[in-house]
Amino acid sequence: MNGKLRQLAETARQKTWVSFTHENDPYSLLHWSVAGPYHDKKDVWLLQNEMTFETKEFATLNDAIAWLGEHMPHITEVL
């Protein structure tokens, strides 16, 4: 795991949310849980492109980090 990816993972674990840039596009990775009388329970990590609002869900933070390592190798800034 490279330094930026490690920093991203550590920040997400501590704060349950982190923003970063990949090839100059802003992204957010956040823990999303929904529950209540009118909502199905959901407990996922959500990756969102902040320009297009496209999202991808992961069952665990480790799954999200593994996917990022494979598909987004050029993380330039962890915000």
Rank of each mutant, 00 (worst) to 15 (best):
K41Q: 09
H71Q: 13
L8W: 07
R13N: 13
G36V: 13
L79M: 06
A64E: 00
L46H: 02
K15T: 15
L30N: 04
T52G: 09
Y38A: 11
M72Y: 07
K56I: 05
D25Q: 10
K15H: 14
G36A: 11
Q48D: 02
W17Y: 15
A9H: 15
E10F: 12
E70I: 11
L68D: 05
I65R: 11
Q48Y: 01
I65E: 01
D63E: 10
S19K: 14
I65K: 07
K56V: 08
F53D: 07
S28M: 02
V18E: 11
H39P: 03
F20A: 05
E50K: 12
E77F: 03
I75C: 07
T60P: 03
Q14W: 04
Q7R: 15
D40E: 10
T21H: 09
L5C: 08
H39L: 09
Q48T: 15
P37D: 12
K56P: 02
T16H: 13
K42D: 06
P26R: 09
E54W: 04
V44T: 02
T21Q: 11
E54F: 09
H39T: 05
A64H: 04
W67D: 03
V18Q: 12
W17M: 12
A59D: 04
S19T: 13
R13M: 14
T60D: 04
F20Y: 12
T60R: 01
E23P: 02
W67M: 02
H31S: 01
L8P: 13
D40R: 10
E50N: 12
T55G: 03
H74W: 00
A9V: 07
G3V: 14
K56M: 13
I75G: 06
Q7L: 15
M51V: 14
N2A: 12
E57Q: 04
L47I: 07
F20E: 11
L79C: 00
D43L: 01
Q7H: 12
S33V: 03
A66R: 13
V78K: 00
E70G: 01
R13G: 08
S28L: 00
N24F: 11
V18L: 12
G69T: 04
E10G: 07
